[in-house]
Nucleic acid binder design. Structure first.
Lengths: 201, 201, 201, 201
DNA sequence: TATGAATGAGCTTTCATTCAT
DNA sequence: AATGAATGAAAGCTCATTCAT
């Protein structure tokens, strides 16, 4: 059973790479099989269909993200720390599993073409959780409340995703803690304090 | 001539709608013909191929955007006013031609799979112009310069595009100056002053 | 009426060129119209269909050939003179109207794909007439009669057509009476006296 | 492997039949599939495209012909025997594989429309080899040398191909050694000794 | 007579999926 | 479990022909 599971996951990972390299629509099942070093039919033995394969990948992605949201965030932390956790999660994922992030950025987060209702729900759920985080912080007085939580979270996620998007579109790898640190710091800085020069200047 | 041109544009607009509704890959030429109320072959009479049709749509989009960047912005204006113009352009476009914005958001701004080199160039050009705007403002002292212009412009565009993206993914129409005003104000407020509560509070 | 007829013939001649240049199947009605400097629809005004156009060309060809067979040959002449007339007719035609000969050689004389029953009949009729010529000469004792007339005429026509075919496939023009003379002489020499060296040698 | 190869060849043979029956342009991939009793897609599984399929057929033809020219001819034989080998090869092929000969006669030997440069080269190569054979015989004094080798070989091949062409256009089968013998004898007789009655007569 | 926009049947090809082994 | 041959529905595109003006 473990062996079987392993094989299934193996194929999934190669599929992930092919989907990232070529996009969902341009990816061929034959290419996935070839990448996994496996026969054509075996892909179907382990995964019902192309769509199924894609959903399994998304599940993996959402699983990790939700796990982080469930366990990685301390509700009593300051929102700055919480958002830092989110940012770092994305950056870490991009470093360790760039294909997955790539797919999320290009095929899910702006898709609409591939967004089945079920997938859209997952996405909205994620947006919703971030919004709740922001709203709670507003209640605690950590964030201004004259901008709706929905807006603030949209701006935050937009900045984060688009930051990743530039990396993704340039096929730019992310190496070294320094770069991650800089991205996170700048993102948080701008989000909390804005883009204006310091008052004293 | 006018009549002919009109027909061509007509087909383009219906194609725009179909591409928006179904995405480039899922859009069928037959659907475009049907939507436009013309025969199958006529679409090809006016547009060389499916890809061509899509490119014509993108050209229209980039044409408008570049025109706005060329003529709509006063280089001596404060960057806040310049960014406001950009925001309003997107919102106005979304109001008057939601399909076009939809396609830009879903098929271009994060695609990578469908992004031919030529298309990617257009996109990078647009990113570059915004970055220049930000950099100039930094030089004039209107924006903090301890965050790179590339980062600031990414955050700004990310917030803007994702804001539109939420409208797009919900198929949410945008009507009334009030809503547009609110979005623009909030976006600018957060971008310039950040999300923290006012100091005095 | 004369004017109308002229226009019709005019289009036919340009069609002839296009059919020759591209072959029947690869020839486009639009190309014929363009070559003739005439609008798309006008070709159809004068000629019912593409097939019709092609048939009109063949009719022209067969017309000339039959006319030559009817009036150009003296039944009492020696067969050598008769065959010389045939050879010269083909060579003259190739000189003055290479398109027509080209089409006969490439699209008719070996086609079978484009050969409708009607067209095949025309072809067989032509073969038949040549055979009769040969048979008559055999009766007159001008040709050996231990090879069937059908064979002899096939060999003769094969040599002639294939000779033209090499010109056609190389797009080689035929200029000057000298070359024509040489071809005709050689062809007749071989046909009548064979390829062996003279006995006396 | 043998089984797979067999299937591929099987499809090729049915394709050959359909191409012969309808000509390259009028042949439909669906018809080939149907004739072979396989599904639509399987034809493409084994052969890349329609053009490819056709090229494979030609390759088969040229392969056999070149093999015969390479190994079937003794350079020291009298030219009469060499030409007899060529004639018999064509006749044998027509008997055992009439489709292949049919295609050569109708789609290659006079085509020009379908003749890609690569195909034309094969054809010219074949013509060239025959010419060399004739030229060598002229040097040995076995053939008159006051007619250029190019002409003599054209006349010979023209007679041979046209002889076959009459069989082909009439869909006339060739059975029995007697008929083959007669054709070969007559062809050689006329080619070497000409069509005139014997001197002594 | 003359135009060229409009039509749509029909073509080759692709590729996710199934199935016999 | 594993293979890859076999399937066939659809897709984009072409182009002879028609038709309104």
């Amino acid at each position: 059973v473990t062996d079987k599971e392993k094989r299934k996951i193996d194929i999934l990972e190669y599929a992930c790479r092919v989907f990232r390299e070529r996009g969902y629509h341009n990816a061929r099942m034959a290419q996935i099989a070839e990448a996994a070093g496996v026969s054509y039919g075996l892909v179907y033995h382990y995964h019902k269909s192309k769509e199924n394969l894609f959903d399994a990948i998304l599940e993996k992605w959402w699983g990790g993200l939700n796990e982080m949201m469930d366990n990685g965030l301390d509700a009593h932390e300051h929102v700055a720390d919480q958002l830092a956790v989110i940012i770092n999660y994305f950056l870490d994922q991009y470093e360790s599993n760039p294909d997955l992030v790539h797919i999320f950025i290009t095929e899910v987060s702006r898709s609409s073409a591939n967004l089945t209702p079920a997938r859209l729900d997952m996405f909205k759920h994620w947006i919703g959780r971030t919004e709740s985080l922001i709203a709670a912080a507003q209640k605690r007085g950590e964030l201004r409340d004259n901008i709706k939580a929905r807006y603030l979270s949209t701006f935050f996620l937009g900045a984060l995703e688009t930051m990743l998007s530039t990396l993704v579109l340039n096929n730019q790898p992310l190496r070294g803690a320094a770069q991650k640190k800089r991205i996170a710091t700048n993102l948080l800085e701008q989000f909390f304090n804005g883009a204006l020069p310091p008052k004293g200047k």
